[in-house]
């Protein structure tokens, strides 16, 4: 087990290294410099490029950057007052996490409940209803949903808020205000989570309910509620956990539209701005961070799954 983890950690390290390298060189293929501004003359731009050492051969710059990274320095943003990239990411992350985690919790809970409902009453009206709901949930594009929610729910009905409000004591925005303002963005994000969880939960629970041990439990005289509560739900939930990981990554990295509509100062927005301004180190930083999230979450799931399901652990140990 330990060896497996060490091996995986090594692979993670290797992957991140390669991601960093590829992205570093790829970004230099982008046209222009971080200092493009129609007002300034080419000579001034050239001076700026020299100041940040961007005129050195790319290989030299790469080694320099790599050296910095090994010392924990991911460079500075050229377009935001030379602020360290790590600081900028650290400032943005909490907002993305706040919205994302709300969406995840809400989505998974509702998804599991609806999925269970559909499985228990399989073939009934409720089953069909929930299935249709799930399909509709994934069929409404998020920008349409966000636009309609803002126009009708907020503007016409006066419920919830237009914008996400970060917690700010001096402005009088408490944790609760902030959470309240996160409801619409989180809801918009959670539709996909609900649909996916629900579908998964339903099929898992159906399979469990058809299994022999449930039959046995029923035969032993337990009533249906007890069987579902004690045996079936718990067993059906295990596989559902596996899709939570990828969904978490999706929520943390794929919320750009929602961030744009609700004014969330999140990571995706930062990446978009950095990309349009050729802010190399910032793009690189956010990207490597995304890759880091991706590989670690996958690792955690694999480990967790091993803990939950002994069969997997055995297989993992072998490889």
């Amino acid at each position: 087990m330990l060896r497996y983890v060490v091996e995986r950690l090594f692979l993670i390290f290797l992957t991140l290294f390669v991601v960093l390298t590829i992205n570093f060189f790829l970004l230099r293929l982008m046209p222009g410099t971080p200092f493009d501004n129609p007002k300034i003359t080419p000579a001034q731009k050239e001076l700026m490029v020299r100041k940040y050492g961007l005129d050195d051969p790319v290989g030299v710059q790469y080694l320099r950057y790599l050296n910095d990274v090994l010392h924990g320095d991911f460079g500075v943003s050229f377009r935001l007052q030379d602020q360290p990239v790590t600081k900028l990411i650290a400032m943005r992350l909490p907002h993305t996490v706040q919205i994302g985690s709300m969406a995840l919790v809400f989505g998974v809970v509702v998804g599991i409940l609806l999925g269970a409902l559909a499985a228990i009453y399989r073939g009934s009206f409720w089953d069909g209803f929930v299935t249709i709901l799930a399909v509709i949930g994934v069929s409404i594009p998020s920008m349409v949903l966000a636009a309609l929610l803002q126009h009708y729910v907020v503007a016409e009905w006066g419920m919830f808020t237009y914008l996400y409000n970060p917690i700010d004591a001096t402005r009088g925005i408490s944790v609760w205000d902030s959470l309240y303002s996160s409801i619409l963005p989180a809801f918009s994000l959670s539709l996909y989570v609900i649909s996916a969880t629900m579908r998964y939960m339903r099929s898992e629970l159906v399979e469990v309910l058809n299994s022999d041990y449930i039959l046995l439990a029923r035969a032993k005289g337990l009533n249906k509620t007890q069987v579902i509560m004690r045996h079936a739900l718990r067993n059906a939930l295990i596989p559902v956990i596996t899709i939570v990981g990828p969904m978490t990554i999706g929520l943390l990295t794929g919320s750009l539209v929602i961030e744009m509509f609700y004014g969330v100062p999140g990571l995706s927005r930062l990446l978009l701005n950095a990309t349009s301004q050729n802010d190399y180190f910032l793009i690189l930083g956010v990207n490597v961070f995304y890759s880091f999230l991706f590989v670690t979450v996958i690792l955690i799931i694999d480990l967790l799954y091993g803990v939950i399901d002994p069969r997997i652990r055995l297989r993992g140990g072998k490889s």
Binding site: T15, N23, L29, M30, L271, N287, F294
Partner: peptide, 21 residues
Amino acid sequence: MRFTEIIGSIPMLVFMIIMIS
């Protein structure tokens, strides 16, 4: 498989800007 992870890490917007140029 590692290669797919790396390709997956290429930011699509950056790629598009490069392609447009």
